[in-house]
């Protein structure tokens, strides 16, 4: 009974948050509601006993991806009127994509995709181990390919944003640590009253030499 109660709570909040992501006027609110939705999805995972996936969802999506979303959305100077102007134009496309997704979900649930598939019986193997057992054996190639795709995306992002700028002074820590005192400081014995003259000649000789 308690479990059902929690299921409806997580599911209900998640749906509500998902709706709010779409209809919020303020994009920062949208991201915050998205985070709430992720959280409740993690709750649902815990309810079916997939605690490892639930924690990963929070660590990866909420702890890292959504932070960057929030970061970008907060920094953007968004013109709300302009953003809503495209609504009519994009509506048919959005509806089409949504409709296809709904159709696929319905087809998967009511079709024969899940025939003969049952939830594995609860064993005393923790799901971290269960995942590890198949991830690095049966699915090793898929796993490696997924890693490769991420690597390509990373290199792409770096090469798109990195550019050599001229005139930037960079600090090279190793070079700085290698510096010795006599390369940078000179102790000069200055006679009384001759300070200004001496300094100017020393500076001048430095410049020439």
């Amino acid at each position: 009974m308690i479990e059902a109660l929690f299921f409806y709570m997580f599911a209900g909040v998640m749906l509500a948050a998902g709706t709010m992501v779409v209809i919020s006027r303020n994009p920062v609110y949208s991201v915050l509601f998205l985070i709430l939705a992720f959280f409740n999805a993690a709750g649902l995972f815990v309810l079916i006993g997939a605690e490892f996936i639930a924690m990963l969802l929070v660590v990866v999506y909420v702890g890292a991806v959504a932070v960057l979303f929030l970061f970008v959305v907060m920094m953007l100077d968004i013109n709300f009127a302009e953003m809503r102007a495209g609504f009519q134009k994009y509506l048919p496309l959005g509806l089409a994509v949504g409709g296809i997704l709904v159709f696929e979900l319905v087809a998967a649930v009511y079709g024969d995709a899940f025939d003969g598939v049952t939830l594995p019986a609860a064993t005393d193997i923790s799901n971290t181990r269960a995942l590890g057992n198949v991830l690095y054996t049966k699915y090793i190639y898929l796993f490696q390919v997924a890693g490769l795709i991420l690597l390509v995306a990373m290199i792409g992002a770096i090469s798109l944003t990195m550019r050599r700028r001229v005139g930037v002074r960079r600090q090279v820590i190793a070079e700085q640590n290698m510096r010795r005192r006599d390369e940078t400081v000179e102790v000069v014995d200055v006679p009384v009253g001759a300070a200004a003259r001496t300094i100017s000649t020393v500076v001048a000789s430095k410049r020439e030499g």
């Binding site: 605690e51 490892f52 924690m55 990963l56 929070v58 660590v59 909420v62 702890g63 890292a64 932070v67 923790s126 799901n127 971290t128």
Partner: peptide, 15 residues
Amino acid sequence: NVGILYLFAISSLGV
């Protein structure tokens, strides 16, 4: 079972 992941998840939310 996933105590350390839970800790890591919560501490990553502090931001």
